[in-house]
Write a protein that binds this DNA or RNA. Sequence first.
DNA 1: CTCCTTGTGAATATATATTAACAATCATTT
DNA 2: AAATGATTGTTAATATATATTCACAAGGAG
Lengths: 215, 215
Amino acid sequence: MDKQNRISPAVIRRLPKYYRYLGELNKVGINKTSSRELSEMTGFSASQIRQDLNNFGGFGQQGFGYDVANLRTEIAKILGLDKRYRIIIVGAGNIGQAIANYTGFYEADYEVVALFDKNPKLIGMSIRNAIIRDADDIEEFLEKEHIDIAVICTPKSVSQQVAEQLVECGIRAIWNFAPKDLKMPEEVYVENVHLNESLFSLTYYYNEMRKKKGE
Amino acid sequence: MDKQNRISPAVIRRLPKYYRYLGELNKVGINKTSSRELSEMTGFSASQIRQDLNNFGGFGQQGFGYDVANLRTEIAKILGLDKRYRIIIVGAGNIGQAIANYTGFYEADYEVVALFDKNPKLIGMSIRNAIIRDADDIEEFLEKEHIDIAVICTPKSVSQQVAEQLVECGIRAIWNFAPKDLKMPEEVYVENVHLNESLFSLTYYYNEMRKKKGE
DNA sequence: CTCCTTGTGAATATATATTAACAATCATTT
DNA sequence: AAATGATTGTTAATATATATTCACAAGGAG
């Protein structure tokens, strides 16, 4: 009941997409859908969608389809979006502030509880009810407050060190925006958003297209 | 000479990582390395690294290894980082501004030429030499200026429409931060950064770990 | 009763990673 | 100048992960 239960990461990556498309259907007032319809919207095959969902149980009605709101709720439960998450952001520069202001958060129940920075000019400022605190107070803060997810938006030079400190204080989930691969014990899950790698890939494919067109 | 030459996307995604690690070696003053050493740093197998590089030619010296600076330059060429790119950012909200301020850009020769927004309060402001202009002037602007890459940081509700407008004006590379899958003709390359999907995946794995620990 | 779509399994295809092997060849040492 | 040791470039074989395709019984809606 361990290896058998393990769901392919590719499936997990698709769930948020299903969730998003179901949200769009919901918003337009459509409350019934089918794997075929979802296929047209998402570009994934109907069969794949059914198989993906089947990893977690049967959420549809045979011969009928899926109830949009219900399926959306079920996917939310699978992802854990039915719970509340308390977040801190370490590094309150451009990216850190942008994340704190990011409204996409609030679709689910994520709450940015605090930001941390070294820069005295930033300390004391507040962003959407969250105060920017002195980075030296992280440990003290984490002793008192329960935090689920830490977002690392520091310069890469200190990211590893910051991550280790956070883990020492009990953090087990890191959303890493620093352009560095954090070396972490395996009980810590790190989700990377490497913007420069993303941009470099884009650049490669942009040039490939230009070559193709030029020939 | 088409299907044979096509390089797997997985390889392309690894190149920026090699580039980054070589940069770090360079910075520390190390000018010679090997696939074995790179393997230890990156976590990819030495054999895989050699195979990846071999897709593009031989950059090392048999019996010796790789010259760090040279290999880095070669990877830069492959990705196209030896050229200059002119960028516009559409949507000058939190994310748009953060991207404009993002210094990771300037490792390579990317230049943010302008931002665009609808909000009169933002229009006229400037961020690092780039002025925020009226979104109504995008077409006019693109007629006069050559732009390589457009970054979409608008709300999702208008992202598709904005993208179509950009493509009409000749844009062929889009870096999309809006939580929406853009439907584009195939001569346009879209690189998505879907922050909420990233966060939702993180949430899933965070909960999986908690379950494992709880049992 | 009919039609439709799910849930499910199986078989196959494709993409990617892993492993092994080794000749070629360069730097270094002797 | 020759021997040594190291590491690339390269091919091949295999393993794994993921996607695709087909099929169809089961069961609910109408």
